[in-house]
Amino acid sequence: MTTWRRHPVLAETRVLIGAGILLSIVAVAALAPIIAPHDPNHQDLLRMLVPPFWKDGADADFPLGTDGLGRCVLSRLIYGARVAVIVGTVVPIGTALLGGIIALVAGYCGGWVDWSVSRTVDIWMSFPPVVLSLVLMVGLSPGLRNVILATILVDWTRFCRITRGAILGLMKLDYVSSARIAGATHVQVMLKDLLPGIFPIIITLFSVEIGIAVIVESVLSFVGVSVEPHIPTWGVMIADGLVTVFAEPWGLVLPMMAIILTVLGANMLGDGLRLSLDPRLASRPSLEV
């Protein structure tokens, strides 16, 4: 193994592939004005539904073709990555903070605190997430900030429920009591003993949440209640592509592939990190004879 892969995190191939995919998407989003061949909203009504380069009738100006309004698909994909990257970063952080802190307090305090948090989560989760986010978006005005807010408010429960379960598991271990006996305050126990213990789960959930955030945003875009209409997103592209799917299917397939790639990258990164960050999984002790 080469030197730079000595670190257990880098030794995990899934981490490298997943991080590679996600970093490429981030780079594409950041460099969008430079690398996009066209303005994503520029309509060329003379060249509508141009097929991508590998098909007959392709146009060298539009490598991945144009949509029903003659907009460059490649440029729209590149600009669409910007919304995906912002949503896929801020939403997981938000859900992790909101859900994680509530779970930590509920799991550690137990009793009525835990009971009321759990019941709130139960009720919250009984609303279909898509319907809940649609209702929230109708109430709030369109815009990136509100999309993020709506997604966090819908999805913090997933984080909360799973981390609470993990904390209850840790609370059964004697090292939490040991830390108390050693004089640690409640906050110290939560931060130094409980939080590191649920870190692998937070990482996994965080990466799952990246994918979910991107998908939820796409769903909202698809039905037209996400960001302002002039901002291209993958969900809007799918909606547009659906209209012309029989004339030119690639307008639909390409943004879907972009979403799939993002979710795949996020899941691989999360899986790999979880495996390599757990000290008990990372270096397996010798087998008992």
């Binding site: 271990l173 090292y175 009591s177 040991s178 213990g197 008990r280």
Partner: peptide, 18 residues
């Protein structure tokens, strides 16, 4: 009883840290 993520130095001096 021993937090698997703390090393020995950290574990045995736990009562001093708080």
């Amino acid at each position: 009883a021993l937090n698997p993520r703390r090393d020995v130095l950290n574990l045995v001096t736990q009562p001093l840290q708080s």
